[in-house]
Amino acid sequence: MFGINGGELIVLLVVALVIVGPERLPHYAEQLAQLVKSVRRFAKGAQAQMREELGPEFDDIDWQKLDPRQYDPRRIVRDALSDVWDDDPAPKKNSGAHAASAPRATPPRASAATGVDLQKKGAAAPAAAPYDEDAT
């Protein structure tokens, strides 16, 4: 609890006893007990309100899954990507990764040497470079 072992807890209790004194200690212990009881009542009331508002869905919630100690970013990304890959249809034969990553040939707008717009002059745009899927 809070990273305190048994020996440190005893030392803290002895220091608290010395600081508070034996006259006021029962009063503070009673206040601490009342605080713990009120926190428990508040938590039970919040749980009852959630159960009432959510109805039967409250019992279906997997509370272990919502535990922040279970957070693993690698698992979350892996699960998200596996959902995406499972939803995609099988890739077509000609639309593999090579075709998607192949650069598209776009005709040049201007000549680098002259700055003249090749499309306005009616010059033919250069043909796209051949792409062979079997060669790569």
Rank of each mutant, 00 (worst) to 15 (best):
M1I: 13
M1S: 07
G3C: 05
G3W: 05
N5Q: 09
N5P: 00
N5F: 04
G6W: 00
G7D: 15
G7F: 07
E8R: 14
E8T: 11
L9R: 15
L12S: 03
L13F: 06
L13I: 14
V14I: 13
V14S: 10
V15E: 15
A16P: 00
L25T: 10
L25A: 14
L25D: 02
H27R: 15
A29W: 07
Q31W: 02
Q31R: 15
A33F: 07
Q34T: 03
Q34V: 01
L35M: 07
V36D: 10
V36P: 00
F42C: 04
K44I: 02
G45S: 14
Q47C: 08
Q47D: 12
Q49P: 00
M50A: 14
E52I: 01
E57S: 10
D59Q: 09
D60S: 14
I61R: 06
I61S: 07
D62Q: 07
D62I: 09
D62L: 02
W63R: 13
W63H: 05
Q64G: 14
K65Q: 13
L66H: 07
D67T: 01
D67M: 01
P68L: 11
R69A: 08
Q70F: 01
Y71N: 04
Y71F: 12
P73Y: 03
I76G: 01
V77Q: 09
R78S: 12
D79Y: 03
A80D: 04
A80T: 08
D83V: 07
V84R: 13
W85I: 05
D86P: 00
D86H: 04
D87I: 04
D87A: 15
D88S: 05
A90S: 12
A90D: 10
P91G: 08
P91Q: 06
K92Y: 00
K92T: 08
K92R: 15
A97D: 10
A100G: 07
S101L: 15
P103G: 06
P103V: 12
R104L: 13
R104W: 06
R104Y: 04
A105W: 02
A105T: 14
T106E: 14
P107H: 06
P107M: 03
P108M: 08
R109N: 05
R109M: 11
A110S: 13
S111F: 02
A112H: 04
A112W: 06
A113R: 15
G122P: 03
G122H: 05
A123C: 03
A123E: 13
A123V: 13
A123H: 10
A123F: 10
A125R: 11
A125E: 04
A127M: 12
A127G: 02
A129H: 00
D132T: 03
D132A: 09
T136F: 13
